[in-house]
């Protein structure tokens, strides 16, 4: 389960909308054991593409240091799908870097963004509950 405070949810979706027409991406900092997100780190898409994303390596390093300094960790990544469902693509699954992470998809295909969270371990993809909570 991933717990996302409402303001961070809005920050994440706003970053995805601002990235159009390209895919947008970012990292989520928080508490590994509980899946509680405490920070949203919008990052540049180094691939600058509507079809693929690469989290900018410098932005990743900065986010990782910030999360560690807060006593937390990077616990997941989000990215937008501009024309497809909020479901991990084969590329997303093949390139998923860490089985302990949460993988959040933000679909911008329809009028209202659709946000879902997944765990990806090897080739297995499982949707998990996503709770958006007040802070």
């Amino acid at each position: 389960m991933l717990t996302l405070p409402h303001d961070l949810y809005e920050q994440m979706v706003a970053h995805c909308l601002a990235g159009l027409p390209d895919e947008a991406c970012g990292l989520l900092g928080g508490v590994d054991e509980t899946g509680e997100v405490t920070a949203c780190y919008p990052t540049r898409n180094a691939a600058a593409s509507a079809k693929v994303y690469t989290v900018d390596p410098h932005d990743h390093l900065r986010a990782d240091r910030d999360a560690e300094a807060a006593g937390n960790a990077i616990i997941g990544v989000f990215h937008s799908h501009t024309h497809t469902d909020a479901y991990p693509s084969p590329t997303d699954v093949a390139q998923a870097p860490d089985p302990t992470w949460h993988y959040v998809l933000v679909s911008l295909r329809d009028t209202h963004p659709v946000v879902r969270s997944y765990r990806i371990e090897g080739t297995s993809v499982a949707e998990e509950p996503l709770a958006v909570v007040p802070r």
């Binding site: 390596p57 390093l61 997303d92 390139q95």
Partner: peptide
């Protein structure tokens, strides 16, 4: 990022910090 330096030949000295992170990528 050492890819913008001399990759594995990049020199390091005392007090330098080396960080390893996963490359995070994907796509629709």
């Amino acid at each position: 990022d050492v890819r913008y330096l001399s990759s594995l030949d990049t020199p390091v000295k005392d007090d330098d910090e080396v960080s390893i992170l996963p490359a995070v990528a994907g796509g629709a």
